[in-house]
Amino acid sequence: MQSILQNTTGLGPKPVQPDNLNGRVAVVVGGAFGIGFEISRALANAGCRVIMVNRKEEQGTDARETIKSESPDASVEWRECDMGHLAQVRDVFSQLRESLDRLDFLVLCAGINTNEFGLDADGIDRHFGVNFLGQFYVVNQLWPVLRKTSKMPGTPAPRVVFESSEMHRTAPNNVHFASLEEINDSSIGPTELYGRTKLAMILFAKYGLAGKVIKENQDNIYAMSVHPGAVNTAMQQQWKDAYPGLTGKLLTWAMLAFGRDVKQGSYSALWALTDPKIEEQNMNGFYFSDPDQPGKESAQASDEKLGSALWDLAHRIVKDKLGEQALVDWKSCA
Rank of each mutant, 00 (worst) to 15 (best):
residue 41 R to Q: 01
residue 43 L to C: 10
residue 43 L to G: 03
residue 45 N to Q: 13
residue 47 G to E: 06
residue 47 G to F: 11
residue 51 I to L: 12
residue 52 M to R: 01
residue 53 V to C: 15
residue 54 N to Q: 12
residue 54 N to L: 12
residue 54 N to G: 15
residue 55 R to I: 12
residue 56 K to G: 07
residue 56 K to P: 09
residue 56 K to E: 13
residue 57 E to W: 09
residue 57 E to I: 13
residue 58 E to Y: 13
residue 60 G to T: 09
residue 61 T to N: 13
residue 61 T to Y: 07
residue 66 T to W: 00
residue 66 T to L: 09
residue 72 P to M: 12
residue 73 D to W: 06
residue 73 D to A: 15
residue 74 A to Q: 00
residue 74 A to K: 00
residue 75 S to P: 00
residue 78 W to I: 08
residue 79 R to T: 00
residue 80 E to H: 12
residue 80 E to A: 05
residue 82 D to F: 06
residue 82 D to C: 11
residue 82 D to E: 12
residue 84 G to T: 08
residue 87 A to K: 14
residue 88 Q to F: 04
residue 88 Q to I: 08
residue 88 Q to L: 08
residue 88 Q to M: 11
residue 89 V to A: 07
residue 90 R to V: 07
residue 92 V to I: 12
residue 92 V to Y: 04
residue 94 S to A: 11
residue 99 S to V: 09
residue 100 L to F: 09
residue 102 R to A: 04
residue 103 L to I: 08
residue 104 D to P: 06
residue 108 L to H: 10
residue 108 L to G: 06
residue 109 C to K: 04
residue 109 C to Y: 04
residue 110 A to F: 05
residue 110 A to M: 12
residue 111 G to T: 08
residue 111 G to E: 05
residue 111 G to L: 06
residue 112 I to E: 01
residue 114 T to M: 14
residue 115 N to R: 09
residue 115 N to G: 10
residue 117 F to I: 12
residue 119 L to H: 13
residue 121 A to K: 15
residue 122 D to S: 13
residue 123 G to N: 04
residue 125 D to A: 10
residue 125 D to V: 07
residue 126 R to M: 13
residue 127 H to S: 10
residue 127 H to R: 10
residue 127 H to A: 06
residue 127 H to Y: 09
residue 128 F to I: 11
residue 128 F to T: 07
residue 130 V to P: 02
residue 130 V to L: 05
residue 133 L to F: 13
residue 134 G to F: 12
residue 134 G to T: 14
residue 135 Q to G: 11
residue 136 F to L: 10
residue 137 Y to K: 14
residue 142 L to S: 08
residue 144 P to I: 11
residue 144 P to N: 14
residue 146 L to G: 02
residue 147 R to M: 14
residue 147 R to G: 01
residue 147 R to F: 04
residue 149 T to R: 03
residue 150 S to V: 06
residue 151 K to F: 06
residue 151 K to T: 11
residue 151 K to S: 10
residue 153 P to Y: 14
residue 153 P to L: 14
residue 154 G to D: 14
residue 154 G to F: 15
residue 157 A to E: 08
residue 157 A to G: 03
residue 159 R to K: 15
residue 159 R to G: 01
residue 160 V to D: 02
residue 161 V to P: 01
residue 162 F to P: 00
residue 163 E to F: 11
residue 163 E to H: 13
residue 164 S to E: 05
residue 167 M to F: 05
residue 167 M to V: 08
residue 168 H to G: 02
residue 169 R to M: 07
residue 170 T to A: 12
residue 174 N to W: 08
residue 175 V to H: 01
residue 175 V to W: 03
residue 175 V to C: 04
residue 176 H to C: 11
residue 177 F to I: 09
residue 178 A to S: 15
residue 179 S to P: 11
residue 179 S to N: 12
residue 179 S to Q: 13
residue 180 L to H: 02
residue 180 L to V: 05
residue 181 E to W: 09
residue 181 E to A: 15
